[in-house]
């Protein structure tokens, strides 16, 4: 028999698994809805249990009811924590992707084809993001761009590895077209190799166009 909190537990397990994955698994729309429903039902139970007492409930006089109320009360709060944890884990992941500069919305679309909200809701192979998450990514992207924009000379999303060499060897993994550097234009065609300034190509390495050698 399913018990209070079972569903919440499932959500937490999903969240835990998400932490170790490179990609974001599909949003558990049904599960989130079910846990939310459980909270509402519990709240109704509490209200109807308390109704006959007209606000003068004495826990020591009716210990059985008091115990039910306590269990309901704790279950609701536990479910809330599970929901918060699940969503926060996912937004953390999404933020990480935004920082890395990968186009999250595009990526989600590629995984299933079509990012429209209606088909995303059933989680069946379409976008792995909920419509709310897509909104969130868009807004967070704007927020980050605004914060970054105040440090124009630093490139906040750049590499967090301490720089060793000014110039590095790179191999081109995917055609990336022509880029402009201080030493003229370079045409990045697949499988060619270049000795370039790290700062010029960092973005392309992060996006998987180039591979750093050595």
């Amino acid at each position: 028999m399913p018990m209070y909190g079972d569903l919440g537990n499932k959500l937490v397990q999903h969240a835990k698994r998400t932490q170790n994955l490179a990609h974001l698994p599909p949003y558990q729309t049904e599960l989130v809805r079910a846990v939310t429903r459980e909270v509402r039902d519990l709240d109704k139970d509490v209200a109807s249990l308390l109704e006959p007492f007209q606000g003068s409930f004495d826990p020591s006089a009716d210990q059985a009811t008091a115990c039910t109320l306590l269990v309901n009360h704790l279950s609701m709060r536990r479910n809330k924590r599970c929901l918060l944890a699940y969503h926060r884990t996912r937004t953390d992941k999404l933020e990480e992707l935004v920082w890395k500069g990968s186009d999250v919305l595009d990526l989600a679309g590629q995984q299933g084809g079509g990012t429209n909200g209606a088909s995303a809701a059933d989680g069946g192979g379409s976008s792995s993001l909920s419509p709310q998450e897509e909104d969130y990514v868009r807004q967070y992207g704007d927020l980050l761009a605004a914060y970054k924009g105040q440090w124009t000379d630093i490139d906040l999303t750049g590499s967090l590895e301490p720089p060793r060499d000014l110039f590095i060897d790179v191999r081109v993994l995917k055609d990336a077209g022509e880029i402009q550097t201080e030493y003229g234009a370079i045409n990045l065609t697949k499988n060619s190799q270049f000795y370039v300034r790290q700062g010029d190509v960092e973005r392309l390495i992060a996006q998987g166009y180039l591979q750093k050698l050595g």
Partner: peptide, 21 residues
């Protein structure tokens, strides 16, 4: 950022919670 997060929670599930939660 906090406002965005709160808004995200609200639109995802929190708004259908009882008010005191």
């Amino acid at each position: 950022h906090q406002a965005l997060l709160h808004n995200h929670y609200l639109s995802s599930f929190l708004s259908s919670f009882p008010a005191n939660l």
